[in-house]
């Protein structure tokens, strides 16, 4: 049995438009997109890769919610759109905002010798599963107001290096995430809800905030109310 879905298309010369396609609900969305391209409409453009949810290529929105096309099945009437807040390239293809990782210095700054045990790995096990699928980025409301916001995946990754026992430099990590970073997050939790790898960027941002406080930073949104100007 075939069902109908709508795909939000985009081409710089044609602008945006919606198109209806018939698809097979027993297949994944990605398999259906491929079937459309190979059999019906060779102009349909979408990202594809591992087909097993580990390469992060195929993030899209299904009925407004971020999903991986390769791990999602389709239902009648589904609306398939590209991720938002990212520069559109063509149809469902967008440009990943990976440069935010540079601004957040989301890497090991100063490796040091350290004993790493099971517990130490468990602390970063979930975050290190990030596939940069951009789902969280697309779901985050902050970009409407602040396009320079570092965004959930970059912050989560910064946190993962900050708490890594092998990391010998902590302060620089904090310094990198305060501007357009941890304090701009509204803690709405969208990112955590949509992450296909079970990562909790919102939780990690909260933890970064408390680290930042420990290093003497305070939330600028609280208008200096935080400490009444006293030293604790």
């Amino acid at each position: 049995m075939q069902v109908k879905i709508q795909i939000a298309r985009y081409h710089p010369a044609q602008g945006r438009f919606l198109q209806v396609y018939e698809v097979d609900p027993d297949k994944t969305l990605l398999e259906n997109l491929i079937a459309i391209k190979e059999g019906v409409d060779p102009t349909l453009t979408f990202p594809l890769g591992c087909r097993s949810g580990v390469c992060g290529s195929c993030g899209v929105r299904v009925n407004g919610r971020e999903r991986l096309a390769c791990t999602t099945k389709v239902a009648d009437g589904d609306l398939i759109e590209p991720l938002t807040s990212l520069e559109p390239i063509r149809d469902l293809v967008v440009r990943p905002a990976v440069e935010s990782l540079d601004r957040a210095k989301a890497w090991m700054l100063k490796p040091q010798e350290a004993a790493v045990d099971e517990e130490a790995i468990r602390q970063i096990e979930v975050q290190t599963g990030c596939i940069l699928c951009q789902s969280c980025y697309s779901s985050c409301p902050v970009f409407q107001e602040d396009p320079d916001f570092l965004g959930p995946f970059a912050l989560s990754r910064a946190y993962r290096y900050l708490v890594d026992r092998r990391e010998g430099e902590k302060r620089e990590h904090i310094e990198a995430v305060v501007d357009h970073g941890i304090w701009s997050c509204t803690l709405c939790g969208n990112c955590t809800q949509v992450c296909p790898m079970g990562i909790d960027p919102k939780g990690d941002i909260l933890l970064l905030q408390s680290w930042a406080t420990r290093f003497g930073y305070s939330n600028p949104n609280l208008g200096g109310f935080g400490s009444f100007g006293l030293e604790f």
């Binding site: 790493v116 096990e125 290190t128």
Partner: peptide, 13 residues
């Protein structure tokens, strides 16, 4: 790899 942050699974340390 371990030094630059690769999260290899562990048995104890």
């Amino acid at each position: 790899l371990d030094r630059i942050g690769m999260p290899f699974s562990r048995i104890q340390d």
